[in-house]
Computed example of a mutant assay.
Amino acid sequence: MIKMIIEQRRRSLGGGLEVGRVLPFAKQRMVGPFIFFDHMGPFDLPPGVGGQVDVRPHPHIGLSTVTYLFSGDVMHRDSLGYEQAIRPQEVNWMTAGRGITHSERFEHARVHGDHLHGIQAWVALPAEQEETAPSFSHHAGIDLPQWDHDGVAGQLIAGSAYGLTAGAETHSPLFYAHLDMAQGAVAEIPGGYEERAIYVATGAVEFAGTRYESGKMLVLGAGASRVRALERSRVMVLGGDSVGERYIYWNFVSSSKDRLVQAVTDWKAGTMKLPDADDAEFIPLPDEPLPTLRAAR
């Protein structure tokens, strides 16, 4: 059973770049602990592209960011001192906890040009771990178990599903996987979690007798179990157990409105450390009043 269909909404990141925003959605703010889901690209960056396309240093609290690419090359730098390029079928997992800042730069594109395509998701932390120490980890190879069976080439990005467990440390029960499906292939959707969804990144799929094109997320009920590719398709499957109500403002996530106010105050006051290797500029706080905060659940 499909509980809801969410279609991506185009959002500008500035510098001429757009993403497809899926979560949060007005009527479905979260899926399990997943509170944010952006489809990046696909778009082409020409050689010599300017720095206006970069994501300048900015802050986070109360969440983990999960960056996964189908194509392209992005350089991550953060306030813990990590500097790590991410490439296709790798994972950058950054846990903000009580606070971190980072940037994402398209340095490879400036020299060689690039075709960028991927997904960035945020996972809300359980209330008791929202103020944990920030951390960063990069994952590739055996950290991201793969399988290939009956036209479905899968890769587990995070959590546990399909009898496998990925390498990134997670803080609540969840799963997140990438399925590359040949035309006519059928894939199981993992069960055992409170909330689940599939997102059609490319191609088209059939679910419960209905066709769904790329750019759509299907939020599923407990009984849903299989999806069939009507053409070659990239499908993301995700979900997990609820971590409860969350508030979201800009890049901050918390179970407490007061904590979000503190994060805003800290960023405006310049007390959140910038990355040592990228501290010459930053993204200012948006001109959006705090009273518009909405619970995400």
Rank of each mutant, 00 (worst) to 15 (best):
M1C: 06
M4P: 05
M4E: 13
I6T: 01
R10V: 10
S12L: 12
S12N: 11
G16N: 11
G16D: 10
L17C: 12
E18K: 09
G20S: 08
G20Y: 04
L23V: 07
A26N: 07
R29W: 04
M30V: 14
F34V: 03
P42S: 05
D44P: 06
P46S: 15
P46T: 13
G48A: 10
G50D: 12
V55G: 08
R56W: 14
P57N: 05
P59R: 03
I61Q: 03
L63F: 10
T65G: 08
V66T: 08
T67R: 00
L69S: 06
S71H: 08
M75Y: 09
R77E: 12
L80I: 08
E83H: 12
Q84K: 15
A85Q: 12
A85M: 14
R87L: 12
Q89D: 14
W93C: 00
I100M: 05
T101D: 05
E104V: 11
F106W: 08
F106D: 03
F106L: 15
A109V: 07
R110C: 07
V111M: 12
V111A: 14
H112Q: 15
G113E: 12
G113Y: 09
H115L: 14
H115I: 10
I119L: 11
A121G: 09
W122K: 08
W122N: 01
W122M: 08
A124Q: 01
L125G: 03
P126D: 11
E128A: 14
E128V: 10
E130F: 04
E131S: 10
A133M: 09
P134Q: 05
F136M: 07
S137M: 09
H139D: 02
A140R: 12
I142P: 14
Q146T: 15
W147M: 11
H149T: 10
G151Y: 01
V152L: 05
A153P: 00
A153V: 11
G154D: 07
A161S: 12
A161E: 06
Y162I: 07
L164S: 08
A166Q: 05
G167F: 03
G167K: 06
E169I: 10
S172C: 15
P173R: 10
L174V: 07
Y176S: 01
Y176E: 02
H178D: 15
L179D: 04
E188W: 03
P190L: 10
G191C: 01
E194C: 10
I198Y: 01
V200C: 02
A201G: 05
T202W: 00
V205A: 02
E206T: 07
F207P: 05
A208Y: 02
R211F: 01
E213C: 06
S214F: 04
G215D: 01
M217N: 06
L218F: 00
V219D: 01
G223Y: 02
S225P: 08
R226W: 04
V227H: 03
V227A: 00
R228Q: 15
E231Y: 02
R232H: 14
R234E: 12
V235E: 00
M236G: 04
V237A: 03
L238H: 00
L238M: 14
D241F: 06
D241A: 12
S242W: 00
E245T: 15
Y249D: 10
F252D: 04
V253P: 02
S255R: 09
D258A: 15
R259Y: 06
V261R: 15
D266F: 07
D266C: 08
G270I: 04
D279C: 13
D279I: 00
A280C: 08
I283K: 11
P284H: 13
D287L: 15
P289E: 11
L290D: 13
A295Q: 04
R297I: 12
